[in-house]
Design a protein around this nucleic acid. Structure first.
Lengths: 172, 172
DNA sequence: CGCAACATGTAAGCGGTTACATGATTAC
DNA sequence: GTAATCATGTAACCGCTTACATGTTGCG
């Protein structure tokens, strides 16, 4: 999903600044997209110029230059339209997948190291989950719970599968 | 993983044409990347100009203009280098995830329709798996088996989870 | 004969990543 | 005071996607 739609979607939960949005995306584990400020600020500017969002407040708690955006009615209906048209594919891609596919070109030591590292990171990740206590979404909507739970289930499956089938990665 | 590395990686299993590579990627369910010819041919041209791959045969079985590429020793070591340097993240993204996250903006009917469609597609997908009888990889390497099995396990988890927690998607 | 699959490529445009650039506020 | 975090933005580049363009081979 492209940056503009994600920003618009997140703003449908409540008002936020570009910084807030970035934090929220990060804290939900880069679930549906990962990005830097270089994507978010231009996206907000574009949405704003189309009238899909607007500035609500500019200073909000002692901090300098804080630009808080709010979705407009036009923005909300445009978002609904886009989502209704979408044909969302569930194609799971991962850099880890890709690397393991070509792991015959890796030394056994390096491969062991990578798998151990990733396994540890995933275990930590699966535990950490649900610290998504962002200011957007006070009571966490049930759909966000659905997605977070699914993400966790997928992580757990990956961990279990990798442990059980690790032998397949050894040189034959 | 970028198009060039994927092409180089696939050619490490054996010689192939651009068309073959596309077919192989498709038949493995767009596992680590999905692309059209518009990515593959330029990638092959770039790899070729750097000496990482080379043309082996030009006609191979009655077909016109068939350009079969082969990885060079330089290409193989360059690929090893790239793979060894990589820090592969296992970040699972899916358009379906994203849409469901914002599903409060969808009508109940449309949501039901989308979930049913995706579920059916995933079930079909999980069954079809392992028709990857491409000319590359005669005896399927065990790493390819690992990755294909993991993909299947993740699909099955998604199907089960969606069935079990579908209620969370209903309007509250 | 016509259609599907085989087969390769180019060019424009779009969008995201990366690096750069700046400055305020808070906590130690 | 100084480092980390808060906070926003710009510009260049890179690479992928999409659409276009073309021609062959084999099957029914």
């Amino acid at each position: 999903m492209d940056a503009k739609t994600v920003c618009l979607g997140l703003l449908s939960f409540g008002e936020a600044s570009g910084y807030d949005l970035k934090k929220h995306v990060e804290s939900s584990g880069d679930l549906f997209f990962a990005t830097g400020f270089g994507s978010i600020y231009p996206a907000l500017a574009a949405l704003s110029s189309k009238g899909l969002i607007e500035r609500s407040r500019t200073t909000g708690g002692g901090r300098r230059d804080r630009k808080v955006y709010r979705i407009t009615p036009t923005g909300r209906s445009e978002l609904s339209r886009r989502l209704a048209m979408a044909e969302p594919r569930h194609t799971l891609r991962s850099e880890l997948f890709a690397l393991l596919y070509f792991s015959h070109l890796l030394s056994t030591d390096r491969l062991t190291q990578i798998v151990d590292e990733r396994l540890a990171a995933m275990i930590a990740d699966a535990r950490t989950e649900d610290l998504t206590e962002s200011s957007l979404m006070h009571p966490k909507p049930s759909r966000a719970q659905f997605v977070a739970g699914l993400r966790r289930a997928l992580l757990e499956t990956t961990i279990r599968y990798t442990r059980d089938h690790r032998k397949l990665l050894e040189p034959s």
